[in-house]
Design a protein around this nucleic acid. Structure first.
Lengths: 234, 234
DNA sequence: AGGAAGGCAATTGCATACACTTTTTGCCTT
DNA sequence: AAGGCAAAAAGTGTATGCAATTGCCTTCCT
């Protein structure tokens, strides 16, 4: 590989392909059910079929693409039913995390959670959607890590990433920002109180509401935003 | 591929490699931390490096092997802590499944669950460990499917497969068979009663006890049983 | 003698070539 | 004209070869 494509971010060719293709799926450039031809992708990104193939394997493991033996790969088709199932699972997983947090978080973890959460209140007042989204991600990351369970963490992370395409625009909905913060507050309060059952319930309810807010953006209504992963091709 | 190796079970070469290598990891022939050299594996199984590489990718996604970029793959090292975390997750997942079963199972599903469960009582009296293990698998499969949640099903399936290496010999422990059946009975009773909370608790407790029973077989104490996936090589 | 730099061997990562499977298209039969 | 079969084309699955990276060993300098 003669130095070209050196302007690109990082990692192996396979990683680049995973990001490039995955991003195009997540952003809706590649639509669910669309055929993913290996040679087309390879020529398009100016690499050989080998890394493309491997990338499709990764994406398949992530659940973003579906692979039929000897019959090529397609962008995973997520039915309304399966989407609901994923949100349901997410709610349960978050609930477990919150419950474990209430029972297991260290003193410094609790303090950090509280501090960050209170700090984010300012963003709600300002209506800073972008910044709040960052805090929101950080908040949930704290919950996931605070559960002190590596495997639950993995399950949560993979599920969250699979849901990413469907929850992107949730904070654009009117009033969602303030409501989100209130729900976070219920979770934080319960955790600090050490009330696992209440924390779990609050976290489950939180996701359930996000689910409803995101249902709008489900199948057949994917945005066509530009890719955020620049590559030489395209 | 010139017709040879036709005596083997099925599927593509990659699938065979996944099974062959995965089985050797699961059965302890390949020990945690052991280096997985691509050319060695390829020559050993008389295939080229390509399917071996792809298989290692799959196994990496399954969590059975660990891949370091440019530095090869090793059999995943499962720490005592991570193992505990996996059993904990399994308990929670089974709990969720049982709860959902109590709330959602159809009439015929409930009947089938009960019938099969009662039938397995005979195996306990006979001490038929092998046959009971089959029923046990079927039982849990019913629970997973009865939850009517495709994504929870996936999470449960992957977690279960990752735990497989550590729970194999559980029924060999004295009295485990009868105890297992009693725990199943508690779950079934609660489900048929429609008591989700009780079913969830019973299922969680069930896994917890399996966890304790399996802890004996954790890191550093893997058996060296022969592979159950015959391949031309070996 | 100890450490660092450079080179060599081994192994992974990518590209290309070949084999087999599936699908499509066109021709032949009914 | 319609349906089915066959052959070719398209595309995936596997093999092999080449480039690039890593780790180690040797060697040279301080």
């Amino acid at each position: 590989m003669s130095g070209k494509r050196s302007l690109i971010r990082s990692g192996t060719t396979v990683d680049q392909m995973v990001r490039a293709i995955g991003d195009r799926i997540v952003t809706g450039v590649l639509r669910p059910g669309e055929k993913l031809d290996e040679v087309s992708l390879a020529t398009r990104f100016e690499v050989s079929r080998t890394p493309v193939r491997e990338a499709l394997g990764h994406l398949s493991a992530m659940g973003l693409v579906e692979r039929r033996p000897n019959r090529g790969a397609i962008v995973a088709v997520v039915t309304q039913e399966h989407l609901a199932s994923m949100f349901e699972s997410m709610a349960e997983l978050e609930g477990i995390c919150a419950r474990f947090c209430a029972e297991r978080m260290t003193g410094s973890e609790r303090r950090a959670l509280e501090v960050e959460h209170q700090a984010s209140a300012r963003l709600v007042r300002l209506g800073a959607e972008e910044d709040y989204e960052y805090f929101n991600t950080e908040f949930h990351s704290r919950l996931d890590r605070g559960a002190h369970s590596t495997h639950i963490y993995e399950l949560t992370a993979t599920t969250r990433s699979r849901l990413a395409p469907f929850r992107r625009a949730q904070f654009r909905l009117a009033g969602r920002l303030a409501k989100s913060w209130q729900e976070h507050d219920a979770i934080v309060t319960a955790i600090l109180r050490g009330d696992g059952a209440a924390a779990g319930k609050a976290a489950r309810d939180h996701v359930s509401i996000v689910s409803e807010a995101s249902a709008v953006f489900a199948v057949g209504d994917q945005p066509k935003a530009a890719s955020t992963t620049p590559v030489t091709a395209d």
